[in-house]
Design a protein around this nucleic acid. Structure first.
Length: 400
DNA sequence: GTCAATTCACATGAAAGAGACCACGGTCTAGTG
DNA sequence: CTAGACCGTGGTCTCTTTCATGTGAATTGACGA
């Protein structure tokens, strides 16, 4: 038995670097949002009629990840909710993240989640969708209410389930007398509006707002503000914040990434028993975040994904040449026969590769090699230092 | 040399199937009074 | 008589397969200068 007692005591004696780690976590809603005053005001202006029990316009927010769309909409809606509860106004605000698997990524689940918000218990499956609608509508129409529905990552929902949901949701206003429903859609994808039903489109995007990425200086401000609350004084060394911001700005100004980077840097420094966060911790943090993300995928995705990823790692290990779908499929098949798994069709592997690309583990690009066909050119999107590690974990998990 | 047709190796889409999960209603069974 | 067990039906959801269609540029081959 290891002497854990000492370890824990040492741990407790050690001065913690963090004062309040929560403010660096992604679900934290700060009380001030630097460099977004205009947006906050605009949104507040659009939603304000709600406080007079008039239906606000539907609103659409665009912008890349980490540009503050979610934070701001949460902030504004929480303020509204606060006033509403002071004045006893029947306003409901429902926030749904459509990207969360098995929560809100199909029509059925959206409705059942909505129903759940109103205290209805709807089974996760088994009922016809329109039945769920009926139950929901009947229950909800009982009293006068104004509902603001925030659909985050709405593009994911549309891509998977079609635009019928939005059509049905916008129609609730016409069908129910007591309910006013406004929708706030949040999307990372500027283009996704192009291929949805024009009727839905016009009714949905009565107001639009685009969030541009932060630049490095703005991210610095955000980081400084949060770091002040999160860390003890003097913990963050000179240049640390600047470097975090620079990293994040390189990635299209993603503030969430910058905050994560700072938090992980702090955690790593603390674990090393240091009394401060130095620039070198950021590099470690960067690598750790990357590795964790890949490992997370490796563990949560099904076997076929893992096999495909392993094939990619294997092929790219052998040569530095760019690799193509066909090569991977061949290797993949041989792996399958080794493991005794029935290989999937190339069609499916093609999709899996596309999904791995979406997850950011690989970089796949469709290119045409002219006479020699059209295919995906695949490169690894992860630091090479982590590859052997990941490969071993993969092989272990697959009994190879 | 120029230009359009050809051709490759997949990408991309649509539809449909398999299998897991689940609710509901009806029927059967065993226990109870 | 009734509560619970046990179907069968019909629904959703995910992962796949099957079939069909699309596609970008290197290559080819005809054409004219």
């Amino acid at each position: 038995m290891v002497e854990l007692n000492n370890f824990f005591n040492d741990y407790l004696d050690q001065e913690p670097l963090f004062k309040n780690k929560k403010v660096l976590q992604s679900n934290y809603t700060p009380s001030t949002i630097p460099h977004r005053d205009e947006h906050v005001k605009t949104i507040a202006g659009i939603l304000a009629p709600a406080l007079r029990m008039e239906k606000p316009s539907n609103l659409f927010l665009y912008g890349k990840t980490g540009t503050g769309k979610t934070v701001i909409s949460k902030y504004v809606t929480s303020q509204i909710l606060q006033i509403a509860s002071e004045k006893k106004l029947p306003i409901e605000i429902i926030y749904l993240n459509c990207k969360l698997k098995r929560v809100a990524d199909t029509e059925y689940r959206i409705i059942s989640q909505l129903a759940k918000e109103f205290g209805l218990d709807i089974p996760p499956t088994g009922l016809p969708t329109d039945e769920v609608y009926k139950i929901f509508l009947r229950h909800i129409d009982a009293e006068k209410k104004l509902i603001i529905l925030v659909l985050d990552e709405i593009d994911q929902l549309i891509k998977k389930a079609g635009d019928e949901i939005l059509y049905n949701l916008t129609r609730i206003n016409f069908e129910l007398k007591n309910i006013e429903l406004s929708i706030i859609g949040i999307s990372n994808d500027l283009l996704f509006m192009d291929n949805i039903d024009p009727r839905v489109k016009s009714s949905l995007s009565e107001e639009e707002l685009v969030f541009s990425p932060y630049n490095a200086l703005q991210i610095q401000d955000i980081l400084k503000e949060r770091a002040k609350i999160a860390f003890r004084e003097g913990v963050v060394r000179e240049g640390v914040i600047e470097k975090c911001a620079a990293y994040a700005a390189r990635e299209h100004g993603d503030a969430r990434r910058a905050l994560e980077l700072l938090r992980v840097s702090g955690e790593l420094a603390e674990r090393k028993g240091k009394k401060y966060i130095g620039i070198e911790d950021i590099d470690d943090a960067e690598e750790k975040i990357e590795r964790d993300r890949v490992l997370d995928v490796v563990h949560t995705q099904p076997k076929q994904f893992q096999l495909t990823l392993l094939s990619i790692l294997d092929v790219s290990d052998v040569s530095d040449e760019p690799i193509f779908t066909g090569d991977i499929y061949e290797v993949y098949k041989s792996f399958c026969s080794k493991v005794g798994l029935k290989p999937l069709t190339q069609r499916r592997i093609s999709d899996i590769i596309a999904e791995l690309d979406m997850l950011g583990i690989i970089n796949a690009r469709v290119i045409s090699k002219g006479r020699y066909g059209r295919t995906r050119e695949i490169k690894l999107g992860i630091p090479s230092s982590t590859i052997p590690n990941i490969r071993n974990i993969l092989k272990e998990g697959l009994n190879l």
